[in-house]
Amino acid sequence: MFRLQGSKVLAVDMTGDAVRAKNGSMVAYDGQMAFKKMSGGGEGIRGMVTRRITGEQMTMMEVKGHGTCWFADRASEINLVGLRGEKLYVESSNLLATEAGLRTGTSFTGLRGASQGNGLFTTTVEGHGQAAIMSDGPAVVLRVSAQYPLTVDPGAYVAHQGNLRQSFQSGVTFRTFMGEGGGEAFQIRFEGDGLVYVQPSERNTIAGDV
């Protein structure tokens, strides 16, 4: 059972079940807990090798026990995402914890990843349960539907879920090279049906100054 205590601390009530959390993110616990580092994020040898190759590295630990455990990471804002069989795409650096019923994996993101400065791969979370993702400032959740496609700055993108197609838009024109670019040269456009999480802050991206 995930719940937020304030907006920057995740409290998890456990009765013998296990959750996976970012390594070292436990700040306090109450009751009996066992912490076990999971090599390769608990995805087996194949997942481990994939993560090593793709650079989408993530050290997770498994927490098991009875009681309450609190997690936090660098005072980042925490957002809870409930999944019912959908797939959540999130940057590994933004994933804080997942419930036992969720599987994690990696997927290719293409140019979006490159434009974010986060590499070409992203982490997927799939199954039934709750996941906690982190953002710099509280994330705004934006719904994408057929009549409302959404365009996002790569630096502010945190995660998305649902059946979304993403395409990469570049507004680079000759003016960009004259130093008169629009300042938003690279954008990701989401179409389809789903939710996109954006944070009120921009990571430094290669496109940051264009």
């Binding site: 719940r3 937020l4 205590q5 804002e77 995402v81 509280p138 705004v140 959740v141 409302y148």
Partner: peptide
């Protein structure tokens, strides 16, 4: 604020987003 403790965040779409106003303290 979009994140009430214990509940999931509110999903916004163009119809629910405010016009020329704050979405939360950090986003306009």
């Amino acid at each position: 604020m979009t994140t009430q403790p214990g509940t999931g965040p509110v999903a916004h779409d163009p119809a629910t987003l405010p016009a020329d106003d704050n979405v939360n303290a950090y986003t306009f």
